[in-house]
Every structure is written in structure tokens, then in C-alpha cells.
Write a protein that binds this DNA or RNA. Structure first.
Lengths: 222, 222
DNA sequence: AGGGACTTGCTTGACGTATAGCAAGTTGGC
DNA sequence: GCCAACTTGCTATACGTCAAGCAAGTCCCT
């Protein structure tokens, strides 16, 4: 029987900072790659260079570790959305230039962060019940929506037009990334070549700009 | 092909036709819902109203059952693509009407067949190695691409424009369906209401038509 | 300074549970 | 009675969780 441990001011978490981050990094990679079910704490420990018991020791349970991964991931995303929003606000460009810039930046972001996309895709397929418990993801989405709505000064008669547009931009950018091994391969497209990525980005920007603001296809911002 | 000849001449598969189809139906539902890993042959048997051993008895192994589900599913999809293509060919409408009809029909199809979408999403996340072994999916994709390319008589200077457009249409239609529990919920949208579905369909059609053919937003075909 | 008491960080062993696949058994129609 | 169509028992494997163990500090009293 342990005597009443004097828990001081902090709710100290088990494990050292370095170990916790190594475990988080490994877990993010493996959860994104294989999903929650197919990833064992044994695998996470091995990938992090610690024993199979350490992830459980540091984070309590497998579910808690997964939550921690999502939390860290969406904190990063929310920061990215904020800084992107501020950059757009400060740019003073015209609506179509701003929109093209937003799409281009978002396209590059998800291309550079496939873990983020895959984690959400896993959540989408498994019901999103864990994501539900991670507040930053709602804030990031709402903030992106508000930014898009304000920046483009969309028709006030159609208040959900911004949401539709946001869904379209995300869907257009995500699809080739998510389905490189299914649909793209069936079409004979190698989704990883810079040529395809560039063509895709151009296509998305043209589609969104022409379809939304009625402009003819414009040059990419260099 | 298999007109008169009964099952005598064909390579006999274990189990009765009725049982095999019941198992296939249950497996399709469960694999689509939970994915391959999280679905046990026990669950499939229970959902099909047979014992836990029957799925294995009828289809050999869990992997073979999964393959059979994908095969049946993509045979159906290929048929749907073919009949849709023939209908478009015979319609004699203008390009924008045809394109609007294609998008509308596809939107309705995936809304009515969420299992199909979810099965491919699971495949996309797990590497698509099983789908690779199911030929009809490539044929369906290629045929859809050819149909789109021919029907719209796209600029021959941009041969991959049809592929980009196909990816865009699919991505635009899929996204709200796949992410109703993640992104849509974060945005406060209930993706299952007829109102949203109708608004989404209109948005996609307008975006694709305006963005591709340069037409202004047109009415939905009634 | 130094040494025992205590804490932290991590490892290892053990246990209960779930699953796929196989093999032996059972049933029912002809 | 025989064969196909199942069912049920069994085995090996894998996993999450928990508890015990252990080594390396850290603190504190003298």
C-alpha cells in the first residue's frame, strides 16, 4: 500500500520528455500508416527504440497514446491555419489571387504532411469518435471556414457557399493523395511525380477560380 | 457466356448459392463498415445467419472472401459505368448537359452505394494490394475515363485533362460522404440531410461545368 | 561527505481475450 | 449409405494491460 503521494502542483506525466516525443513520433507514423487497430504498442516501442512496455507506461493506454498523437497533430494544423490566414489578410491582394494562394499553399501543405491526411482518413472510416474528443480540429476547421468566407466576400445570399467551397478545395487536393494506390493506379497515373503534382495543382486552382469567381484560368503565383 | 450451362461444367465452389450470397452480402456490409482487420469470420457468419465456420468453408480464407466481395462489387460498378456511358452516347445532348447528367448520376450512385465508397477507401488506406488483384476495377476506371474524354471532346492539346476532370468529379462527390463524421461535423454540417445533398450536388455540377466548359451555372436536369 | 530512503524511468513476465485456420464430427437429401 | 453442406472443437498466435522488478539518480539527515 502506497502512502498518499504528495502530488505537487503539476500533474506530472510519466516518462522523460525525450522518450515521450520519440514514442509520439513513432506512433504518429505507424498510426498514420497502418491505422489504430493494426498498430501494436510493441511496434510503437520498437520504432521508438524503447521496450514494448514503454508506450503504455508513458501514455497510459493505447487509446490515450492515439489521442495524444491526434492532439499534437491538430495543434500543428491549427497553427498553420492561423498563420496562413494572417498572411492572406496582410497580403492585400485581389480575391482571385488570394484564393489561388490559399489553394496552392494548402496543396503544398498536405503534400508535405501525408500523415495528417491519413490520420483523418482513418478517423473518417472508423467513425471519428476519437477525433471528436480532440478540440483543436474543430477550431481549425471553423477558422479555415471563416477565413475563406471573409477573404472572398462571397455572396451573402448564399451563406453556405463558403462551406461548399472549402469542402471542394479539400476534396480536390486530397483525392489524388489518398487514392494514389487505387484510383490513380487504375488510371495509369503515378501520383508521386512532381509533374503530376504540378499539373494537379494547376487544375485545382483553375477549376476553383473559374468555377467560383468566374475568372478565366490564371497563372500560378510564383 | 454462361447461358445454358448450369454449374455442372464450372469449377464447383463449396457451399450453396444461397449461402454464398448471404455470406457475401454480410461480408460486404461488415468489411465496408469496419474494414478487413476489424471484421472476423465469426461476425460475418453471425450476420449471414450461419455458423462461424461457414464463411471459411465457402470461400477458403478470410482474404479470399474479401477478394470475392471486391470482385462482385466492381463487376456491378463496371456494369453501371457501361450502361451510363451508353445512355450518354444515345442521348444526343450538348456537352454541358451530358456532363451535368454524368455528375448528377454519379453523385446519386455513390450516395446510394456507400459500401462501394467505403471499401475503396479502406483499400486506399491499406495500400490497395487486394484491389490490385481485382481486374474489373481497372476496366471500370479506364472506361469511365474514355467515356468522359470522348463525350466532352476535350482539347486534344491537353490529353490528361480528362483524367484530371475525372479525379475532380470523383473527389468532389466522395468527400462529403467519406468525411461526414470528421470534416463535415467539425463544420457543423449534417451530411445526411436531403437539403445538404441537393445543395452539394448543385455546387459540384456548377463548379465542374463552369470550371471546365466555361458555361455559367445551369439548371439541374430534372 | 556519505549513506540510506525514496522516486523516476523503463523492462520483463504473466494473464485474459480474441482470432484464423484446420480437422473431426453431424445433418439432411437423394 | 453416401456425399455435400455445414457445425463445432481445437490449436497456435497475437495483443493490451497490469504488476513486479531493477537500475540510476535525488533528497535529506547526520
Amino acid at each position: 500500500m502506497s502512502s498518499v503521494a504528495p502530488q505537487l502542483l503539476e500533474p506530472e506525466k510519466p516518462g522523460s520528455r525525450a522518450t515521450r516525443e520519440a514514442v509520439l513520433d513513432a506512433a504518429e507514423r505507424l498510426f498514420a500508416e497502418r491505422g489504430f487497430e493494426a498498430t501494436s504498442l510493441n511496434d510503437v516501442g520498437a520504432a521508438a527504440g524503447v521496450s514494448r512496455g514503454t508506450p503504455g507506461y508513458c501514455f497510459g493506454s493505447k487509446a490515450d497514446l492515439y489521442r495524444a498523437v491526434l492532439e499534437r497533430c491538430f495543434s500543428d494544423v491549427r497553427s498553420a491555419v492561423r498563420s496562413g490566414r494572417e498572411r492572406a489578410l496582410a497580403s492585400g491582394e485581389s480575391a482571385d489571387k488570394v484564393l489561388a494562394g490559399i489553394v496552392s499553399e494548402y496543396f503544398d501543405f498536405i503534400t508535405a504532411n501525408p500523415n495528417f491526411v491519413r490520420l483523418i482518413e482513418w478517423e473518417a472510416l472508423t467513425g471519428g469518435r476519437t477525433l471528436e474528443e480532440v478540440p483543436p480540429h474543430v477550431e481549425a476547421a471553423q477558422e479555415a471556414l471563416a477565413a475563406l468566407s471573409a477573404e472572398l466576400a462571397l455572396d451573402p445570399d448564399r451563406p453556405d457557399e463558403a462551406a461548399q467551397l472549402l469542402l471542394s478545395v479539400i476534396g480536390l487536393c486530397w483525392f489524388p493523395l489518398v487514392h494514389s494506390k487505387t484510383m490513380l493506379r487504375a488510371l495509369g497515373i503515378n501520383a508521386t511525380t512532381p509533374e503530376f503534382l504540378q499539373a494537379r495543382k494547376r487544375h485545382v486552382i483553375d477549376l476553383v477560380l473559374t468555377g467560383t469567381l468566374g475568372r478565366s484560368p490564371s497563372r500560378l503565383p510564383s
